[in-house]
Design a protein around this nucleic acid. Structure first.
Length: 579
RNA sequence: GCGCCCGUAGCUCAGCUGGAUAGAGCGCUUGCCUCCGGAGCAAGAGGUCACAGGUUCGAAUCCUGUCGGGCGUACCA
C-alpha cells in the first residue's frame, strides 16, 4: 500500500527529531478538496507542540527530507496550517487502474479470513404480505451480505419466521371467521383479529378448494428449508367440523403456508436470497427455549417473582428486569428470541448482525445483555437500526394508512417504480437517518433520477465501445502502454475515482453504510459524463489516443458494474429508447 | 419523567470517525449540440452547520446544558 510507503519514508527524518515509530501514528487521509492532493497528513500539526516548533516550518523540514519515488508520489507540498500533501504519480495510478482491471484490487481487500457472519433481516411476522418497511431492510441486509463477502467474510442471510405463538393463532382464527362468515354462519370475529382484505380473499378461495388442491398448493415448498411448511389435511369444511382449537390450527397452518409463499415470492422478486429461513416453532419443538432458560438458570441470571420468571437484565445495563416465563406459564417472545440467537451462536457463527426497525431499539439492551448472560462474547451480537421511510408524492407526505390501500406492500412499490429503483433509493441514505422517498422522482426514467443517471453512464459506455468497433478501432484491454497516453485532466480525474473503488467497498462494509456505494457510483458516473463531454473517445484519425480513452471506458464500466452488483441493481447495456 | 435517533443551502441529503475556503443533487438564473445516445456538460446566486458554553494548535464532528422533531418505555410479538 502506498500509505505504508509514505510512512516508511517518514521514519528516517522523524528519528532525527527524536521521534520513533511507536511514538506517533502517521495518519494519511484523502483530503476533501481535490486541490489538496490525493493524500494528506497532519503529522506536523500533531508534533509541533511536542517539539516546540512552528507547524509549517516543521512540515517543510519533514517534507524536504522525504525520499520518494517520483513514479509513486509525484509531488509533496506544504499547505494550510502545516499539512503535508501528496499527489500520486502516474506510475502508481496506472498500477492501481490495472489492479482494478485484473481484480487484484478486489482480492487485496478480502481480509475477513472467511469468518462466518450471520445477517438477519426482514423477519416479518407471517401474518400478511410484506410491507414496504421490509423493503428497506431487504435492500440493506442483502447488500451488507454482498459487502461482507466482498471483504472476505462468509456472510449468511437469514430470515426468522415467527410461526409460533399468539399471532399465528390469531391469524388462524381470523381466517376461520372470514371463512365462516362467507359461508353464512355467524361467528364472532376475534378481538384484534386480522381484518386485511387479503384474508377475505383467501377465505373466498377456500370456499371451492378441495383437499387435493390444498395439498397441491403446498408443493411450492418442496424444498429443504421449508419442510416445516405443510398443508393441513382435508378441506376447509373438514376443519370447521373439528373442535375450535384444532380448527383454528388448521386454518392457521393454511394461512401460514399461503402467506409465506407470498413473502418468499416477493423477496425473490426483490432479488433477496436467504440461506436460511429459520422457524420459531422449531425452537420450541427441539426444546431450545427451555434449554436456554436452563442455561440462564445455571448461570444464576434468573429469579422468580409474582409467579413469573425474570431475567436480571439490569445487571447488563437494561432499565428493568425482563420476564422470561409469564405468570400463566408461557414463555415470552423475548425468551424464544434469546434461544434463537443463542442457537445462532451455537451454529458456529462468529458474528451476528440483526436489522431492526426503530421501534425495537429499546429491545437492544436486554438482547445483548441476554447474550452476555449466556456466555456469548461481548460484541458478538450487533444490531443495525433502520429508520423509517416516508413516501412523498407531489411534494407531499403520502398517507400510508392501510385502509386507504395506497401502496403499502413491497409488491406494489415494485409495480410502481421497479425493484432496481427501489433498492437504490433505499440505499442512498445511511441506515440511521429517515428516508424521504420521492415517488415522482423514482417513477421518472430520465437521468434526473439518480438510478438512471448511473445506468445511463453504463449504457453510454457500452454504446461508445460498440461504435469504436464499428469504425474499426481496436478495443484492447487496459495496459500500461495505453494508459500512459492518457493526458486530459478530466480523464485523470475519472481515473482517480476508479482507483478509489476498493477503499469505498472496505469503508462501506466496515461501517455498515451501503450509502457510500450509491454515493460513489453517482460520483463515478458524473466523472465519466464530464470526461465524455471533454474527451472525444472514438476518433479514427487518432487511434492511439482513442485506444487509451477506450481503456478508461472499459475500466469505468467495470467499476460501475462491480458496485451495482453489490447494490443489487442491473447494469444494462442500453436503456429503453426515449419516446 | 427516562432512554435512543435526529437538527447542515428554499427542498432532499453528504461531510470518509477532530483538519484547510462546510460540499452534492433538485429548484432558480445563465451558457454549451457540424460530435461516440443532449437521457449529457459548464457557470452563478444561495450557510450564524438549531442555540449557549466547554475541551485544543484546530469543532458541523467530541463533552455539558437548552430548544425543536421522531421513536420507544408490556408478564405483546
Amino acid at each position: 500500500m502506498i500509505e505504508t510507503l509514505i510512512q516508511q519514508a517518514f521514519k528516517g527524518p522523524l528519528e532525527k527529531l527524536g521521534i520513533y515509530e511507536d511514538d506517533v501514528t502517521i495518519e494519511l487521509e484523502r483530503p476533501r478538496d481535490r486541490n489538496h492532493g490525493d493524500l494528506s497528513t497532519n503529522l506536523a500539526l500533531v508534533l509541533a507542540k511536542r517539539l516546540g516548533r512552528k507547524p509549517r516550518e516543521l512540515a517543510g523540514e519533514l517534507a524536504a527530507a522525504l525520499e520518494l519515488d517520483k513514479a509513486m508520489i509525484e509531488s509533496v507540498e506544504i499547505a494550510g496550517p502545516g499539512f503535508i500533501n501528496f499527489r500520486y504519480g502516474r506510475g502508481y495510478q496506472i498500477d492501481r487502474l490495472l489492479a482494478v482491471w485484473s481484480n487484484e484490487a478486489l482480492s487485496e481487500i478480502r481480509n475477513g479470513g472467511g469468518k462466518r457472519i450471520n445477517v438477519e433481516f426482514i423477519s416479518a411476522n407471517p401474518t400478511g404480505p410484506l410491507n414496504v418497511v421490509s423493503a428497506r431492510a431487504g435492500a440493506f441486509g442483502m447488500t451488507l451480505c454482498r459487502l461482507l463477502d466482498a471483504v472476505g467474510y462468509d456472510a449468511h442471510s437469514e430470515y426468522y419466521v415467527n410461526d409460533a405463538g399468539r399471532q399465528v393463532n390469531l391469524l388462524g382464527a381470523s381466517l376461520r371467521a372470514h371463512y365462516m362468515q362467507q359461508r353464512g354462519r355467524s361467528v364472532e370475529f376475534p378481538e384484534d383479529g386480522y381484518k386485511g382484505r387479503y384474508l377475505e380473499v383467501m377465505a373466498g378461495e377456500l370456499l371451492d378448494q378441495d383437499s387435493t388442491a390444498i395439498r397441491e398448493a403446498a408443493k411450492v415448498f418442496d424444498n429443504e428449508s421449508f419442510q416445516r411448511v405443510e398443508a393441513p389435511d382435508g378441506n376447509a369444511e373438514d376443519w370447521c367440523s373439528l373442535d375450535e382449537d384444532a380448527s383454528v390450527r388448521c386454518f392457521a397452518k393454511y394461512a401460514l403456508m399461503k402467506i409465506l409463499g407470498w413473502q418468499r415470492e416477493t423477496c425473490r422478486r426483490f432479488g433477496l436470497r436467504f440461506d436460511t429461513w429459520y422457524f420459531e416453532s422449531e425452537l420450541h419443538e427441539t426444546k431450545r427455549v427451555e434449554r436456554t432458560l436452563e442455561t440462564l438458570r445455571k448461570r444464576e441470571q434468573v429469579y422468580e417473582e409474582d409467579g413469573a420468571v425474570w431475567f436480571r437484565s439490569t445487571a447488563y445495563g437494561d432499565e428493568k428486569d425482563r420476564v422470561l416465563i409469564r405468570a400463566d406459564g408461557g414463555p415470552t417472545y423475548f425468551l424464544a428470541d434469546l434461544a434463537y440467537h443463542y442457537h445462532k451462536f451455537q451454529r458456529g457463527f462468529e458474528h451476528a448482525i440483526d436489522y431492526w426497525g426503530p421501534d425495537h431499539h429499546g429491545y437492544i439492551p436486554r438482547m445483548s445483555g441476554g447474550m452476555l448472560a449466556l456466555g456469548v462474547p461481548e460484541g458478538w451480537f450487533e444490531v443495525e437500526i433502520l429508520q423509517h421511510v416516508t413516501f412523498l408524492e407531489n411534494g407531499r407526505e403520502m398517507n400510508m394508512s392501510k385502509r386507504q390501500g395506497r401502496f403499502v406492500t413491497m409488491d406494489q412499490l415494485m409495480d410502481e417504480v421497479g425493484a432496481d429503483v427501489a433498492k437504490f433509493f433505499f440505499l442512498m441514505r445511511k441506515p440511521n437517518s429517515h428516508l424521504d422517498f420521492d415517488l415522482d422522482l423514482a417513477r421518472d426514467t430520465s437521468s434526473e433520477n439518480p438510478v438512471y443517471y448511473v445506468k445511463y453512464a453504463h449504457a453510454r459506455i457500452c454504446s461508445i465501445l460498440e461504435k469504436a468497433t464499428k469504425v474499426g478501432l481496436d478495443v484492447p484491454a487496459p495496459n500500461e502502454a495505453g494508459l500512459r497516453h492518457v493526458e486530459d485532466p478530466a480523464a485523470w480525474s475519472l481515473a482517480g475515482h476508479i482507483i478509489r473503488l476498493p477503499r469505498v467497498i472496505t469503508a462501506a462494509a466496515r461501517s455498515r453504510e451501503p450509502h457510500r456505494l450509491t454515493a460513489y457510483v453517482l460520483e463515478l458516473s458524473r466523472a465519466f459524463h464530464q470526461f465524455y463531454t471533454e474527451c472525444k473517445v472514438v476518433d479514427e484519425t487518432e487511434p492511439k489516443r482513442s485506444e487509451s480513452r477506450l481503456m478508461l471506458c472499459l475500466l469505468t464500466r467495470k467499476a460501475i458494474a462491480d458496485v451495482l452488483r453489490i447494490v443489487g441493481v442491473d447494469a444494462p447495456e442500453r436503456l429503453p429508447d426515449k419516446e
